[in-house]
Simulated scan of single mutants.
Amino acid sequence: MQTDDIRDDVREVLFTEQQLRERLAEIAREIEAEYADEPPLLVGVLKGAVVVVSDLARELRLPVHMDWMAVSSYGSGTTSSGVVRILKDLDADITGRRVLIVEDIIDSGLTLSWLKANLESRGPASVDICTLFRKPARLKSDIELKFVGFDVPDEFVVGYGLDYDERYRNLRDLVVLQPHVYAPAEA
């Protein structure tokens, strides 16, 4: 889907598809340098990371394996309680392997901190994190991120895998939504 297809829903384009793909290519070169001796297992976090993992994997010039996890963080409304549940676990045994968690966006970092600790408890050689987007203003964890694509403002962003109510994941750009899309109408 192109931004022009939903122009009335978009307040601002933060990054175009071209900019996103160029940055993913740069990250791919960094990953190749870091893992030249032993390609990592890419672990995508469903659902948002599907687009990022797919495009990153195609850009890599290393033979990599991919696996997927789905986790849910519980709380009230949009606030995480820090209680995390695995909805879909890895199929692969990660014992002794180098693991690279690939995320679409890091918001508070709390769920990802839990996920990293969980994977580290399984005996991998290493667990690193790659994210295409990070919201520095929202971080509540000092989790180490090995590869970061872009810092984004504390705005409601969608596209390139990120959604609002399961919509806009297939948007090729990263955009800020107009408030009327997600804010309830005034009564």
Rank of each mutant, 00 (worst) to 15 (best):
D89V: 08
W68E: 08
S141I: 07
S73Q: 02
V53L: 08
G75H: 05
A137R: 12
L100Q: 06
V50H: 02
D154S: 09
V43K: 08
D9T: 07
R21F: 09
T78F: 08
D89A: 04
R11E: 15
R169N: 04
R29Q: 10
D93Y: 08
K146D: 10
K135A: 03
G77R: 11
R61M: 00
V43D: 03
A36R: 09
R172E: 12
R58Y: 00
I143R: 01
V176I: 15
V10W: 12
L112V: 12
A36Q: 09
E166R: 09
I94C: 13
L145V: 15
L90A: 10
V152M: 07
Y164D: 03
F15K: 11
M66W: 00
D142S: 11
D142Y: 02
P184C: 04
L90C: 09
R23F: 06
E17K: 14
L162R: 06
I143G: 02
L41T: 11
Q178F: 02
L145P: 02
A117G: 14
P124D: 14
E120Y: 06
T3E: 10
D4E: 11
R61S: 07
Q18C: 03
T131V: 09
V84S: 09
D37P: 00
D107F: 09
V127G: 06
E30Q: 15
D91K: 12
N118S: 14
G75Q: 12
L87A: 04
F147H: 10
V127D: 06
P39V: 08
S81I: 15
A57Q: 04
T16E: 01
T16N: 02
R172K: 13
V176W: 06
Q18M: 03
V102D: 03
S80N: 13
L174V: 15
D89G: 00
L41F: 05
